[in-house]
């Protein structure tokens, strides 16, 4: 197992190098000028040229690339061209809200979706199954901002149970965090509940037809044990894959939800950086996202062997 993990970690190095080169070149080939954003509408071409010189944007591409990678190897993500603040600090302050909301979303999704999927499979072709699948289709189909606005209208404006917007870190009090995070998490959870419930149902249906399930039932094992110990555990691999991918997607930024609920997460940071052509921030964010995907996939792969002892690395 250890050698497998080591191999996987080493395999990320070429992936990250390819991503770094690709992102760097793509950004430099995209039209846009951070100096123009910095200087504003009335700047003259001569002023813009001097600002570009100062920002190092007029250096040859290879010089810019090696300067950046040199900084990265020393753990320095650089400085924002626009706000002149450390990219590491900017990401650090934005990562917390995104991770916290993502964790809460995944917890809500798993707690709701897995039982829904199991019950739907257990009561296959009954009204329960039909209801779960209908909800699932709805969850996929309704745009996330619509769900967000509807939840705000009901729970924040009509009932006044929670605030319309904003974010508080758990360190400001769990209550504060919870009442601000619940609506965005529920909004995001809608699609993941739909996704995970469908996957759980499909996977469970396959497993429930296996001989060992029939044997367990014949032996008089309680239905709960059959479903949750024998069937669900064997159906877990595809479900875990979906949960892992979902978590990585959530961490890499959910800009619409962050905008609707005014959450200062990394989705907004990335979009703002792209609109301003803030190269160091965009580069760091894309590398970070790639790293998160690699890490999450590794964790998911490792978790397979926990749930399914037949899988060994």
């Amino acid at each position: 197992m250890l050698s497998y993990i080591l191999k996987r970690v080493l395999a990320t190095v070429p992936v990250m190098i390819i991503v770094a080169v690709f992102v760097f070149l793509l950004l430099r080939l995209t039209p846009g000028d951070p100096a123009a954003i910095l200087a504003g509408d009335a700047a003259t071409p001569a002023q813009l040229e001097r600002i570009r010189d100062n920002l190092g944007l007029n250096d040859p591409l290879y010089v810019q690339f090696f300067t950046w990678t040199g900084q990265m190897l020393q753990g320095d993500l650089g400085t924002s061209l626009i706000s002149n603040t450390s990219v590491s600090d900017m990401i650090a302050s934005r990562l917390g809200p995104t991770i916290n909301i993502a964790v809460m979303t995944i917890i809500i999704s798993v707690l709701l979706a897995v039982p829904m999927g199991v019950i739907a499979a257990w009561r296959h072709r009954t009204w329960i199954d039909f209801a779960v699948m209908s909800f699932s289709v709805l969850g996929f189909s309704v745009p996330v901002f619509v769900i967000g606005y509807v939840l705000i209208q009901i729970f924040a404006i009509e009932l006044r149970w929670v605030p319309v917007q904003g974010y508080a870190a758990p360190s400001d009090g769990i209550g504060n965090f919870f009442i601000r995070a619940i609506l965005p998490s529920l909004t995001l959870a809608t699609i993941y509940v739909a996704l995970i419930a469908r996957m759980t149902r499909a996977s469970m249906l396959e497993v429930l037809g296996e001989d060992y399930i029939r044997t367990a039932r014949a032996k008089g094992v309680r239905e709960n044990t059959v479903l949750f110990r024998h069937a669900l555990r064997n159906a877990a691999v595809p479900i875990l894959t979906i949960i892992g991918t979902g978590f990585a997607l959530l961490i890499s930024g959910v800009v619409v939800t962050e905008s609707v609920f005014n959450i200062p997460g990394i989705g907004r940071l990335t979009v703002d950086a792209i609109l301003a052509r803030d190269y160091p921030v965009i580069q760091a964010m894309i590398l970070l996202t790639a790293g998160i995907y690699v890490l999450v996939n590794l964790l998911v792969d490792i978790s397979y062997s926990i749930f399914d002892p037949r899988i060994r690395y």
Partner: peptide
């Protein structure tokens, strides 16, 4: 000064007294 990228959210926040 707080930034709200979504205009509707800002209006709802004002109406709710936030």
């Amino acid at each position: 000064w707080t930034t709200m990228p979504d205009s509707l959210t800002a209006i709802n926040a004002l109406a709710a007294g936030e």
